[in-house]
Amino acid sequence: MTDLHEISRTPVRDRSGAVRIAAAAGLAVLLWASSFVAIRAIGPALSPAPLALLRLAVAALTLTVVAIAQGKFRIRLSRKAVLLIAAYAVLWLAAYTVALNAGERHVDAGTAALLVNIAPLLVALVAGQFLGEGFSKWLIIGSVVSLGGTALIAFGATTHQDGLGVVLCLLAAVLYAAGVMTQKVALRHVDGFTAIWIGCIVATAVLLPWLPQLISEVSAAPAGVALGAAYLGIFPTAAGFTAWAYALRRMDAGRLTAATYLVPATSVLLSWLFLSEAPTGYGLLGGVLCLAGVALSRRR
C-alpha cells in the first residue's frame, strides 16, 4: 500500500469525482480485507510458499498485460533502482506473503489482519530512529497501546494453542515494514506502478523453486483452490493497488491512508460471514487496542 503514497495528487472539485474516489478507496479496502479471508479458506490445500508463488505469478501476469496496454513495457531502470526493487520484492511481496500464509494456518483471518496492521506503527518507529524524524509523545503512547493489544491477542491465541500463528503474523508485519522502508527509497528512482509490476515479477522468480510442489498440490486440490489463488493475484494484489492508485492521485495521501484502518475490521466481518470464524473476546479487545494505538501514533 505505502508504495503508492508517492504518486502526485490533484484536489477534488466536483461531487461526482469525490464519489468515484470514495468508491475506488472502498474497493481497495474491501479487496485487501478479502485477501485475509481467501488465504484462510484455501490455505489448508496449498502450502505457504506454493500459494504465494501462484498468487504473485497471477499478479505479475495481470500487471504485465496492463503495462503492455498502457505502453509501459519498454522501460529503463538504473542499477540502483533494480536492486532496491529486488530488495523490497523479497522482503515484502515474497517473504511477507509466505509468512502470512503460514500464520493463517494457525489463527483466523481477522486476528491475522489485526496483527499485521501494526506494520504502519513499525514504519513510524524505524523512520523516527533511522531517518531523523524523531519520536513524538503520541508515537510513544500509541506504541504502548498497540503492544498491549498485541499481548492480549497473543494471550487469547495461546489459550487455543495458536501462539505460533501470532508469531508468524508478527513476523509478517516486520517483513512488511522492512519492505515499505526499502520501497520508500526505491520510489525515488521509479514510479509506483513500475515498482509494483517489476516487484511481482522478481518475487515470482524468487519463489520458483517451489514450482514442482505447487504443480503437485494444485493437481491434487479441488478446482476452487486454484480459482481462489487466482482471485488473490488478480483482485487484492493487482486490482486493489490499481483502485488505490486512482484514489491517491486525486486525494491527499494522509487523509486517504486513514481508510486502511478499516481493513482489519472488514476482515473480521468477512471471516465471520464466510468462514464462521467468530473472534474471541481477547482478540476483539486486542484488535481494538492495536487500531487505537496506530491511530494515536499518527496524532501530532
Rank of each mutant, 00 (worst) to 15 (best):
G165D: 02
A81M: 04
W197S: 00
A45H: 14
P50R: 07
A99H: 03
W92T: 00
I7T: 14
G286Y: 09
A113I: 02
P50H: 02
L100K: 07
T280K: 01
R255M: 12
A253V: 14
M181W: 08
G254A: 14
T237K: 05
A119H: 14
M1W: 12
G26E: 11
F130H: 11
E133K: 15
V37D: 05
R13A: 12
V58E: 06
R9I: 00
A28K: 00
L31N: 05
Q213L: 12
A25K: 08
L269Y: 09
V90R: 00
G224D: 06
G156N: 04
Y282C: 06
A205D: 08
L4F: 14
G17Y: 05
H160N: 12
G103C: 11
P212I: 12
F135Y: 15
P212T: 12
V167M: 12
V144C: 07
T204R: 04
S219C: 04
T260G: 05
A220G: 12
I153R: 04
S47K: 06
D252M: 03
L139H: 08
L289D: 04
G283Q: 14
R20I: 12
A205N: 05
L269K: 07
T182C: 15
C169H: 01
F130N: 08
S35L: 01
K137N: 11
T237D: 02
Q129I: 13
A173N: 10
T260I: 13
G110R: 02
L30G: 10
V218H: 06
A24V: 06
T97L: 09
T159Q: 15
A38W: 05
V202N: 00
M181I: 15
A81D: 00
P222W: 00
V12D: 06
F241C: 06
A295G: 05
V166P: 04
R105G: 15
R299H: 10
M1F: 12
A172H: 11
V174H: 01
L227D: 00
I75C: 08
G233P: 03
S267R: 10
L139D: 00
P50V: 03
G286R: 06
A238T: 05
S143C: 12
S136M: 05
G132E: 12
L121P: 09
P209Q: 08
F274I: 13
D108S: 13
M1Q: 10
Q213D: 11
V288T: 13
L171H: 00
R20A: 15
E277H: 11
M1P: 09
S136D: 04
I7H: 08
A28H: 09
A127D: 13
W92I: 03
V263F: 07
L77H: 10
R79D: 05
P209M: 08
I198G: 03
A87S: 14
H5R: 15
G287V: 07
R249M: 13
A113R: 04
P222E: 02
G293P: 08
Q183P: 00
I42Q: 07
V145N: 03
A41E: 10
A243G: 06
A203L: 03
L273Y: 12
A173M: 09
P120Q: 13
